[in-house]
Amino acid sequence: MKNQLFKHHLFWPVTMLAALLLFNLIYSPDFFKIVLREGHLYGSLIDILNFGAPLILVAIGMTLVIATKGIDLSVGSIVAISGAVACMMISKGADQSSLSLVLTAIAAALGLSLVLGLWNGFLVTGAGIQPIIATLILMVAGRGIAQLVTSGQIITVSSDTYEYIGTGSLATLPFSIFVVAFMLIIASLLTRRTALGLFIESVGSNPKASLLSGVRSSVVILAVYIFCGLCAGIAGLLLSSNVSSADGNNAGLWYELDAILAVVIGGTSLNGGRFYLMGTVIGALIIQTLTTTIYMIGVPPEITLVVKAFVVLAVCLVQSEAFRQSLVRRWKTRHYPGEKEVVRRAS
């Protein structure tokens, strides 16, 4: 029973998250405090969920891509493009808060994200380019596209309707949490209630054998890149709506790296195969908590990245089975020169 708990794929990620959260208690005794004010819940935990929402979304899409032995470096750029397109369209409108305008803008942004995902998928399956290179193209070009859409400016919008996505709340909780929950459920249903999950894991684990078993691997791969593009597009809406502006240069910058990290911390291997959506969510929360923690304990800005890197390294080491075993081995074979005599006599 105890062994099973240790072996569960969520054990280490959850432990690390709990450790990070507890660590915050030292610096801020009311870290876990949540208050209800004017019908909204406030507190650090809520903030982590709210600010972590875009990353969780991107990481969910990334999980499926990585499970097929692929990778999508372009998600950060898609985040920027999606936000830019939505803000651009809204800012051009006469009545920026009009629901139909905002919905049209959202539809256009998400539609474009789907197309970009399709493009990635096509490069990987149709053109046979390695995923890391195929998506690198859009990673670089995408920033340019976002700049083009915003004409190199930071576009600001003043639309209460659009703002709701990133800042509004529903049933006392931030709306973004519901968006994430919705996409997580969609992803889970798609992969676990249909056979898509089996095909993804099979293609990622052994593409050749899957093909010989009749799995249409190119369709599967196409689907995950499209889904990943969609997730990144929604994340772009959340981010730009949260600040009511679109910044082609900096929106979603380095999101791909955080997302990949979240997937790996969550227990999905970069070699493809088995994937864990809940693990990814926990992984993204670990990264978001870490960011919050670093701000809260007042790490000087110039070394925040270094601190982050060390914590991530520690998280990865704790997760590594090989590393844990080598520690255990060292512990078990430690030498006590003074006790040697006793042992010899006893045996």
Partner: peptide, 16 residues
């Protein structure tokens, strides 16, 4: 290399 799917279970390999 062309038969089994390493990461999957016996059940999943059978029904694939």
């Amino acid at each position: 290399t062309e038969g089994i799917i390493d990461d999957l279970t016996i059940r999943e390999n059978i029904i694939l």
